[in-house]
Design a protein around this nucleic acid. Structure first.
Length: 315
DNA sequence: AAAGCATTCAACCGCGATCTT
DNA sequence: CAAGATCGCGGTTGAATGCTT
């Protein structure tokens, strides 16, 4: 849809531009068999005229089950705002706290919506003669404070929910090594939950997938998440357009069955798992206590560490 | 109604990190 | 261990789409 296929490609040349449904099917069925990862082996084995990088991207940002697109909730908004204030533009790290969202999606959403929203808010406050501009010493007051308190509550809840899903026995000190960045001592990068690891299996999923595409093709308006819908149908969850309003990580819980290795961000080889049983959607996540409070959560809980207006108006 | 401008977002690129040989 | 291959991230692009004039 976006980006047209590269105009000239000799036989051997790799295709670029948007993925077609046919290509998606090929990719998905291959990954069903072999698991995600090993991207370099995909083009030769499937005949896809795509580079491995493109395959990975397509999978992780679009085809992978358990991802939600569009319709960001207020809670998600706030969580993203907070996390970005804390972490900067480290979208992958931020995304690890929002298991249903991809880093790309969050990044896009930030750039297109949130940063503007914040700028506007900031400007509004500015014109209200509020000088919140020295970064170090100011404690947010009044409106800001109230808002932030609420936000922190939200984020805290969300974080609890997110964390409580995995029962990591060990707290994963294995920090990911981009510690050369801004906020070195908080290296909260928890492993991306294994939601990406599981994928629907069985061929009927693919036919459902296709149906989703059909629908999509017929009315190419609205940015619906037709694909995840198709997946969730395939996974046995309610076929209704479940853009669940309240912050629920249900689709995460459907999908994730953390068992074996939980370290690091999905090491592909371990994901030949046959996660067919995604039926734990009813599980009440909110009542679980997070096993490992990490630094972010501490930060969220602390009063002193509130993000400043400056923090929030970055960019 | 159509032309021009703005927004959206899937996909690309470059590069540093990590893995493999 | 070096060198090359691959992965993963973040910034950026640009056609499609939406909006305004």
């Amino acid at each position: 849809m976006r980006r047209p296929p590269s105009s000239h490609h000799h036989q051997n040349m790799l295709k670029k531009g948007p993925w077609t449904p046919e290509e998606d099917i090929i990719l998905v069925s291959y990954i069903q068999e072999h698991g995600p990862g090993n991207w370099k082996s995909i083009p030769p084995n499937t005949g896809l005229l795509r580079c491995s990088k493109s395959c990975r991207l397509r999978w992780t940002n679009y085809l992978r089950p358990g991802i939600k697109r569009g319709n960001f909730s207020d809670q998600e908004d706030r969580m993203i705002i907070h996390l970005q204030a804390l972490l900067g533009n480290r979208w992958a790290a931020i995304a690890s706290y929002l298991p249903e969202r991809t880093d790309n999606d969050i990044k896009n959403y930030w750039n297109n919506h949130l940063s503007k929203k914040l700028r506007k808010l900031d400007a509004g406050l500015d014109s209200q003669h509020h000088q919140l501009t020295n970064s170090q010493s100011n404690i947010p007051r009044g409106q800001w404070e109230r808002t932030l308190q609420e936000d922190i509550q939200m984020a805290k809840q969300a974080l609890h929910a997110a964390l409580s899903v995995d029962h990591y026995s060990n707290p994963v000190i294995n920090t990911n090594s981009n510690s050369n960045l801004l906020i070195h001592h908080h290296e909260p990068l928890i492993p991306r939950p294994p939601s990406a690891a599981s994928y629907a299996s069985s061929t009927q999923n693919i036919s459902r997938l296709l149906r989703g595409w059909m629908n999509q093709e017929s009315r190419r308006s609205g940015h619906h998440s037709y694909l995840p819908a198709a997946w969730s149908m395939a996974n046995g969850s309610s076929p209704s357009e479940d853009h669940e309003g309240t912050l629920s990580y249900s689709s995460y819980s459907e999908v994730s069955q953390p068992e074996e290795n939980t370290i690091g961000q999905l090491t592909p080889e371990t994901h030949h798992s046959h996660c067919r049983d995604h039926s734990m959607a009813g599980m009440d996540l909110h009542d679980h206590e997070a096993p490992a409070l990490n630094l972010i959560e501490k930060w969220l809980l602390e009063e002193g560490g509130l993000p400043t207006a400056d923090d929030l108006s970055l960019l």
